[in-house]
């Protein structure tokens, strides 16, 4: 009876106990810092340093309100959301058509341009900081959010274009020819054929760049500045550090800054997984 049931379900791969244990250990390894951060957000300094992994003796929920008010996190979150939204929109606006052109181009020029985008990886962000600051000053955009909205897409284009180009190259030639026979121009071919098929890739780029943009610190600190009106959440957080830092409040502030990006990732992660799986199958 049991045997027939097993046959009915098809062949079943036995899971190695070692693999299970290792998987759980890996999961714990990833969960430990998150647990530490969350419990620290509810503790006093003494508890954080003396009993770092213990459950809080007294749950200090007020740490969240203190962090929110002290660092003006509400405004900083809005600034970060605004900068990220505009930067993501600009990135896609530029990267999708560029990728389409490169994916359809087959000549030497196309390869040269693709390689030029790849060369963007060779420039370390630190090396670009000084010229970028000079550029911001000369553009009259120093200490503004607007410059960051322009700079972030520029920095994200190499990876975005290369990723999307690879996705778009998987579009079957027959589909493109069929669309052409139906009289579709470049715009319709891009929006009706390439974008729907490359949608998982677009979502992947969105998630990857959103994480990058959200966590960006160095350029935000140097160019956007620390004024409450313009600073991002990553720059606002360090204002909670002082000669007598309340680490519970700092951890609470960190949790608050992580939440938006966690929610965004949760909403888009399914698409990203689809994209990764699609890539694996097609590869």
């Amino acid at each position: 009876m049991m045997a027939s049931r097993r046959r009915g379900r098809g062949p079943r791969r036995e899971r190695s106990p070692v693999a299970t244990v290792l998987s759980w250990l890996y999961a714990l390894l990833l969960a430990a810092p998150i647990y530490y951060l969350v419990v620290s957000a509810l503790k006093t300094n003494i508890e954080i340093f003396i009993r770092p992994f213990a459950i809080p003796a007294t749950w200090l929920w007020e740490n969240f309100a203190t962090a929110w008010n002290s660092a003006a996190l509400g405004r900083a979150l809005l600034n970060s959301v605004l900068i990220c939204a505009v930067a993501i929109a600009l990135t896609l606006l530029l990267a999708v058509p560029a990728s389409y052109a490169l994916a359809r181009g087959e000549g030497r020029l196309s390869r040269i341009i693709t390689n030029a985008f790849a060369a963007g990886f060779l420039i370390p962000p630190f090396a670009a900081l000084i010229p970028t600051v000079i550029l911001a000053i000369h553009m009259g955009l120093f200490f503004t959010r607007e410059f960051q909205m322009l700079y972030l897409p520029a920095s994200a284009l190499p990876l975005s274009v290369l990723l999307l180009t690879q996705f778009m190259r998987t579009v079957p030639r027959e589909l493109v020819e069929s669309a052409a026979l139906d009289g579709a121009g470049h715009w319709h071919t891009l929006t009706r054929v390439f974008v729907p098929i490359a949608r998982p890739g677009i979502v992947s780029v969105m998630i990857l760049q959103l994480l990058t943009f959200w966590n960006e610190y160095l350029f935000s600190l140097t160019i956007t500045g620390t004024a409450p009106a313009t600073r991002t959440v990553q720059v606002a957080l360090p204002t909670l550090i002082s000669d007598s830092t309340n680490y519970g409040v700092l951890a609470a502030g960190t949790v608050l800054t992580l939440l938006p990006v966690y929610i965004a990732y949760s909403l888009m992660s399914k698409r990203m997984q689809e994209a990764l799986v699609a890539g694996a199958v097609k590869g």
């Binding site: 003006a72 009259g140 955009l141 120093f142 200490f143 503004t144 959010r145 607007e146 500045g225 620390t226 004024a227 409450p228 009106a229 313009t230």
Partner: peptide, 18 residues
């Protein structure tokens, strides 16, 4: 003029720049 401001006075950033 600097562009950064606080709650004490928060002019539009672009205006502050110029």
């Amino acid at each position: 003029s600097p562009a950064s401001t606080t709650e004490t006075q928060t002019p539009d950033t672009d205006e502050a720049l110029t």
